[in-house]
Design a protein around this nucleic acid. Structure first.
Length: 622
RNA sequence: GGAGGCGUAGCUCAAUUGGUUAGAGUGCCACCCUGUCACGGUGGAUGUUGCGGGUUCGAGCCCCGUCGCUUCCGCCA
């Protein structure tokens, strides 16, 4: 009987000594000693050393086969002598003495080394992704990703959730990112959209009574890439629960993340309940809505102190409505050289600050620094108390409008964390950011707009919408953050049509507009919708954190490059005219409707050009 | 759409800061080697210095443009 293998390359052990075995895999490395050749044969499961003696007839032939050739060896499992055991290999106590060899897949010269850890250009790795995926690190990441997804599914099932599929071809969603569109052949001129997330479907599943939904859901957004954001598509663990409060969602998430993160990492992991930090507090303390809590530094508000204190540059800013924020950096005075302070100031200036003032308390209790001389001794005493200063500490100041000072403080805080090695790499620190504002003011127009998600539930309900200052209304809207990376947003959804109409009315949308844009959802909510809430942590980002990957491409088997291209499959690519005609993207000549449209578009374009020219002529002084 | 960084052998990098024939490691090719495990040794081949232009007696290096990759901003609930 023909088989390719009796064992995998990671399987044979000392107890198998004496057996005949057949192994198939890739030639990982060759060590040719003239009289004997050693080959590491590699497959998905591991590596096994093959020994080839010169008396074998394929000995000479072997020399022409390169690494990464796919071969099958038959032979006897032999124990290695104690001196030749390789403790680095799981199969290192044995080797296979080859008796027969068959080449299953030849290889030309490979463009980069699989067996060695060398840097390879990203574009080449992506073009030869199948080779890149053979390399140990990436291979392991993808396997780990698979295991993590398996663990997630299992835990979700244990918690009573069911997985439901939702459509990939759906309609363009009215909010958020740019859609990927798919032309409809049956309905010329009309388009499907790929889902940016299954948001509406999962809410409809709740209306349909399914109660606890999850899905490892592909999501598509036509937006530009970042190191932690894949262009085009990504996967999220989509979760929605009926009759659930914000805290119910948190409990599910915390239980799930506890399971996943303790299983796949040895690092220290935050245990539930995670800190809940109101959005405003996060902005005031950390200058960002995704703080890295491994960084112990935080901002305090010193505006009231400086309003009275004798430093005019600060007090006048406070008088004008600005703020002074301080960051206490413990124990650096006398440790960091003068240049450290200069570099931090330069960094602050690069980020739009006028300066970065500071006061230093030396270990001997002396007070130094550019701001110190402006303050009286009793003011310095008060400042020490306000900022809990001890000898050796430095206190840095950000002075600007509240928004700018907070933003700068956030950057400075992160920079200190990095430069002073304050961030423990062996830790995962989670937190929830809660109480996002429901509305905000459009900076250009001054109009009230939704600050996050129009479909989330305003805290205080109709009462709040009717009676409170819109800018003070909070939403049941939350983010989960780990080590400064946003894993997910989520919300308690607004399931009451009247509340939805009212909220949209406040941003200037009439009932009719809401009905036309979100009619499907509104209709469902009018026919008995349960209160529901959800969240959707990014799978890719979770795996990134667990594999310590600096880039999201390290945890995706076949990622796009930054320009949203698949260099291996050559996507996107041009298609032939026949397909375009069939989809009516290029109209057939006899299709009058399109010819009319074309003529109309052309006429429009010409009219606009003429108008522009006329405007230009008019603008010129004659 | 904008800003920064990078681009030298198949791959990773160097080239005394503008100086004469562009080097090393790895891979590749040939040969030697019976216990290696990233085996070792000897020898060899491999370059439009991303592309185009400019400055200069002379450019891998300086300048301008352009292309590619990447990071960030915009954008992304």
């Amino acid at each position: 009987m023909h088989t390719f293998r009796t064992h995998t390359c990671g399987e044979l052990r000392k107890t198998d000594v004496g057996r005949k075995a057949k192994l198939s895999g890739w030639i990982h490395s060759v060590r040719d000693h003239g009289g004997v050749i050693f080959i590491d044969l590699r497959d998905h499961y591991g590596k096994t050393q093959i020994v080839i003696n010169p008396k074998m007839e394929f000995y000479q032939e072997l020399e022409k086969w390169r690494v990464e050739t796919v071969v099958c060896f038959t032979g006897e499992v032999v124990a290695r002598t104690p001196e030749t055991v390789n403790p680095k290999l799981a199969t290192g106590e044995i080797e296979l003495v080859a008796e027969a060899m068959e080449v299953l897949g030849e290889t030309e010269q490979i463009p980069f080394q699989v067996a060695k850890e060398e840097q390879v250009p990203e574009a080449m790795r992506l073009e030869y992704r199948f080779l890149d995926l053979r390399r140990e690190e990436l291979h392991n990441n993808i396997v780990l990703r698979s295991r993590i997804i398996q663990t997630i599914r299992q835990k979700m099932w244990e918690m009573g959730f069911n997985e439901y599929q939702t459509p990939i071809l759906t309609s363009s969603s009215p909010e958020g990112a740019r859609d990927y569109l798919v032309p409809s052949r049956v309905h010329p001129g009309q388009f499907y959209a790929l889902p940016q997330s299954p948001q509406q479907f999962k809410q409809l599943l709740m209306v349909a009574g399914f109660d606890k939904y999850f899905q490892i859901a592909p999501c598509f957004r036509d937006e530009d890439a970042r190191a932690d954001r894949s262009p085009g598509e990504f996967y999220q663990l989509d979760i929605e629960m009926s009759f659930a409060t914000q805290e119910d969602v948190f409990k599910v998430c915390e239980d799930l993340l506890e399971e996943v993160f303790t299983q796949y990492t040895d690092k220290k992991v935050t245990h539930a309940p995670y800190p809940r930090i109101p959005f405003r507090e996060a902005m005031e303390k950390y200058g960002t809505d995704k703080p890295d809590l491994r960084n112990p530094l935080f901002m305090i508000d010193l505006s009231e102190f400086f309003r009275k204190a004798g430093f005019k540059a600060f007090s006048s800013t406070v008088e004008k409505g600005g703020v002074v924020k301080g960051i206490r950096v413990p124990g650096i005075v006398g440790v960091q050289p003068r240049t450290f302070y200069d570099k931090m100031e330069a960094f602050a200036k690069e980020n739009g600050a006028k300066g970065l003032g500071y006061i230093m308390w030396t270990r001997e209790g002396e007070i130094k620094g550019p701001i110190a001389k402006f303050l009286k001794p009793e003011e310095l005493d008060e400042l020490e108390k306000l900022a809990s200063i001890e000898n050796g500490d430095a206190l840095f100041f950000m002075c600007d409008t509240r928004a700018k000072a907070n933003e700068l403080g956030g950057k400075v805080r992160a920079r200190f964390g990095e430069k002073l090695n304050l961030i423990d790499p062996n830790e995962f620190r989670f937190c929830w950011i809660v109480d996002f504002p429901f509305f905000e003011k459009d900076e250009e127009t001054g109009a009230i707009i939704f600050s996050h998600n129009p479909f989330s539930m305003p805290q205080g309900g109709m009462e709040a919408l009717q009676n409170r200052n819109p800018l003070e209304i909070l939403a049941y809207q939350y983010d989960i953050v780990c080590n400064g990376i946003e894993l997910s947003s989520g919300a308690v959804r607004n399931h009451q049509p009247e509340l939805m109409y009212k909220a949209f009315e406040m941003t200037g949308y009439s009932r009719e507009v809401v009905d036309s844009k979100f009619g499907g959802m509104i209709k469902a909510f009018k026919l008995g919708a349960p209160p529901h809430a959800g969240v959707a942590p990014g799978i890719d980002r979770m795996v990134m954190l667990l594999t310590d990957s600096p880039n999201i491409r390290e945890v995706i088997a076949f990622p796009f490059n930054q320009q949203a291209q698949d260099l291996m499959m050559n996507a996107p690519s041009e298609v032939d005219m026949k397909q375009l005609r069939e989809l009516r993207i290029i109209p057939l000549p006899h299709e009058l409707k399109y010819e009319e449209t074309y003529k109309k578009l052309k006429a429009d374009a010409e009219r606009i050009r003429a108008a522009e020219e006329a405007a230009q002529t008019a603008a010129k002084p004659s």
